[in-house]
Design a protein around this nucleic acid. Structure first.
Length: 156
DNA sequence: GCCAACGTTGGC
DNA sequence: GCCAACGTTGGC
């Protein structure tokens, strides 16, 4: 039984277009340094789960497309790299603090489903996206997922 | 660039 | 374990 998620990224850092331009359209989702997001990623996210790719802190914040989780969660290598901005001296190989997963592109929406338009739907008022800011990995209920997909129907 | 919201840190 | 100070997120 797979689950639905929403991952946030600032397109200035990493956008869905960059993902689409990669040879295999796949990458590691790393750099998560928030405990609640980490817990969702480590304890909840599983291979084959589907994820809304959300663009935040940009001109048109919203859901830019869908990606699929293609690995189990595993320790984020950047936490061990002193040269990485994500280095964490408190992490050890035996007790890593941070996790990552690999993801691949499923589809890019023709246009971003804006946060503004999502906000207009009463059924989506209680999405974490709106009730809890600053959470870069969050679960999406099946109801919310399908309501949002009805926004932009497609076949995949 | 502003600033509200809120997570994290560290002194006590 | 409290809480003030500080840092970050993220919409506008």
């Amino acid at each position: 039984m797979s689950s639905y998620w929403l991952f946030k990224s600032e397109p200035g850092e990493f956008s869905i277009d960059e993902l689409a331009s990669l040879p295999d359209k796949a990458t590691r989702w790393d750099g998560i340094r928030n405990f609640q997001a980490r817990n969702f990623l480590r304890d909840g996210v599983r291979r084959d789960d589907l994820v809304f790719f959300y663009h935040s802190s940009c001109k048109t914040p919203g859901i830019a497309g869908i990606v699929r989780v293609i690995s189990a969660p595993y320790p984020d290598p950047s936490q061990f790299n002193p040269d990485s901005p994500y280095f964490d001296p408190k992490s050890t190989a035996d007790n890593p603090r941070w996790f990552s997963v690999d993801i691949c592109l499923v589809r890019r929406f023709e246009s971003v489903i804006t946060a503004k338009s999502l906000k207009k739907l009463p059924e989506l008022n209680n999405m974490r996206l709106f009730t809890q800011g600053r959470l870069s990995i969050q679960p999406v209920s099946s109801q919310h997922w399908h309501r949002i997909m009805a926004f932009n129907p497609g076949d995949f």
